[in-house]
Design a protein around this nucleic acid. Structure first.
Lengths: 209, 209
DNA sequence: TAGATTGTTAATCGATTAACAATC
DNA sequence: TAGATTGTTAATCGATTAACAATC
């Protein structure tokens, strides 16, 4: 990686680059110019070249970008070229909905296991995994060393569980609870999955319209 | 509203202002300064005053902001001072998880009804609503005039349903499908609820760490 | 070779921060 | 009155866009 201080503006556009290049790749498209990408994404060609140049030189003068190579590079930036793994904690409605419907591999993660304290849920097969007893979580983490944990537990329990996960070596938490997790000082990456912020933005725009 | 051309940067901070001021209000906090808000939110006091000034003058020199008034103003910006209503279309796992667990009123919307085509689901009570037959949707929309529709149908059906909703007078769509909806030219506000983008950002940051 | 398109430098534009007069 | 803190103007900083030499 050329530059290790990538701005938030650039980071926020990475998912759209990923979606776009995956689509081109699926359509067997071989090459694409920054102008074409710009049109599809609603950015300027200049911005796209500027963004890519934070990470390296992926194109060829007079040609544009080879889709296969560009896809490889963008997946590399997102950490997808080496498989990352995840566990999910808290198999309520939201947890189960994610296990059943969410495309984790497309997001760059393989789901290894899911945990809950409710004995009536333990043993149930949901999506690709079988719900396990929360008591066995430590053992499983120590064995399989997952990179990331999806946190879909009740808000009141989130902070303590997050702390436990950090101590067990989990490196990232995708937090679906409203709780503030204080594990960033332990080197854990926390990403807030905030649906309500999206809805509030919708409300604002509806109110403006 | 003072200024009707609010930048995306400001809009993206509105949800955090809302969360913060709701919390202060729940704690019976009476007044707050931009410096205190800044500390709680991790912004600068200057930015907060600058942001608020896009919408009006909510404070008092030498005093700060009255929490109750500030809460009223921020809720007003987000369109919460007059009740907005919603329906949900597609009661699969995700749809049901939202109906059961998501706090729509906190997000500014009251859920009026939910629809599905699956006869085995119709009549089932989920959260505050009872799943209705998709065939009856038009009638219900014409009667109750909901402002917004939560779209949790399979991706392949999303575009057509969105178009139908637009024609029936729905003014906003909270889109949980990956489909691109072409209804913005019909004056419909579309907000993408993209969990995968959040996960991709997590992957990037994990890869950088 | 001629046309196309990159990566990068320079110019512009917008967003954030600092400073401060106004005033509660 | 004196201290505090706003709203706003000016200064700075960063992000986006435009321009263009390099070169496929």
């Amino acid at each position: 990686m050329k530059n290790d201080n990538i701005s938030g503006s650039v980071i926020s556009r990475l998912p759209s680059y990923y979606h776009c290049v995956e689509e081109l790749y699926q359509c067997n498209c071989v090459r694409v110019s920054s102008a074409t990408l710009a049109q599809r994404l609603g950015y300027t060609a200049s911005q796209i070249r500027q963004d890519f140049s934070c990470f390296g030189e992926f194109g060829l003068q007079g040609y544009g970008y080879n889709v296969k190579k560009l896809r490889y590079e963008i997946r590399d930036i997102l950490g997808m070229n080496h498989p990352s793994t995840a566990i999910l904690i808290g198999c309520g409605n939201l947890g189960q909905a994610l296990l059943k419907n969410f495309n984790f591999p497309y997001g760059g993660f393989y789901m290894l296991a899911a945990f809950d304290v409710d004995v009536t849920k333990i043993g149930k097969q949901i999506g690709s995994v079988c719900i396990m007893d929360y008591k066995d979580m430590q053992k499983v983490i120590e064995e399989k060393l997952p990179d990331m944990a999806v946190l879909t537990v009740p808000q009141g329990e989130a902070a303590e569980i997050a702390s436990t996960l950090a101590d067990l070596g989990i490196r990232a938490i995708w937090n679906f609870t409203g709780a503030e997790l204080h594990v960033e000082d332990k080197g854990v990456v926390v990403e807030q999955a905030s649906l309500v912020d999206s809805l509030l933005t919708l409300g604002f725009r509806l109110n403006q319209a």
